[in-house]
Write a protein that binds this DNA or RNA. Sequence first.
DNA 1: CAACCCTTTTGATCTGGATCAAAAAATCAC
DNA 2: GTGATTTTTTGATCCAGATCAAAAGGGTTG
Lengths: 170, 170
Amino acid sequence: MQRELADRLTLCTFKKGALIHDAEKVCTRSYFIHQGLVRVYFLKEGKEISEYFCAEQEWVNSPRSFMQQRPDIYYLDAIEETQVAGLDVQDLLFLFGNFPEMERYARLSMGTAYGHFMERITSMRFTTAREKYLHFCETYSDIHHRIPLGMISSYLGITQETLSRIRAQK
Amino acid sequence: MQRELADRLTLCTFKKGALIHDAEKVCTRSYFIHQGLVRVYFLKEGKEISEYFCAEQEWVNSPRSFMQQRPDIYYLDAIEETQVAGLDVQDLLFLFGNFPEMERYARLSMGTAYGHFMERITSMRFTTAREKYLHFCETYSDIHHRIPLGMISSYLGITQETLSRIRAQK
DNA sequence: CAACCCTTTTGATCTGGATCAAAAAATCAC
DNA sequence: GTGATTTTTTGATCCAGATCAAAAGGGTTG
């Protein structure tokens, strides 16, 4: 199965700032990140709002667009020069159909993501801006220093100014 | 497979206010609601914070506790008298092992839940208390009037007083 | 290396929603 | 039904963080 999967992956590199997926289109592939940093964001009143970030050894795509094969609101771009291995949705469906362990892997991964979402929802209610930022630093402990301030503030739902002041004190 | 599933379900009824699952314990069964309304909540500084609500024709459990068979922070209780069909985790695992379509169903359901979570996270950032409430009314359009105000306010992360004032105007 | 552009910081003011307090209304138990 | 408890509403005050404005850094491009 490893072999069947490896044969279907396509390697490619995106330059810093390059658009990996456009919200106008259907997301037909999922990317495994070998090196680099990807941001998932959407537009609200003309401004870019970060939804989350993915780095080395993680899969990234536009979730609802990829799962349901219809356009959704999310754009993906490369925060740094990024090398990925892309897997087409057709190939993934082939693997699901022929290798039950692949479907199990997907179900379990989804369960993990589900848990992370619950935690994030909890951390966004009843917390001060500072607590939100500290939680972000824990969640992204290994990569938080590689993400620009403006992208973090929109991820947290606070303004750049507030985040800058939080960082200043202590 | 329908038959195999039906044979493993246990019917039972919880009175209004009854505890369905205790956070101290491991959640060993998942409940399909035939009639009634269930709240998933946790305690923060002695107060009950609603995480979400489930009603007729939905499955409910303590997600991370059920998936990983270890205790988690969530309690479940019946907001109204509630009739459910319970499925034990052992039985579910048996069904996953013997019926691939069951595993597929679980993966797809999880994907749907994933989408709902993304939407909720979006609706919690950059929105006023009023917008949060309106979003809640859409999300729970068929059951929002069956849920007490205090439980809604903690779900939204606003105070009871603010929610009461929002409802008052218009 | 200078001119430009983008990101981050600093300052001043304003406001939505929290907090504290208490009255009014609804629900429950006996 | 009637008193007790819980839930919801109303009122007054306060503050964390938003908004508006502008200065100060940092990068990158010819």
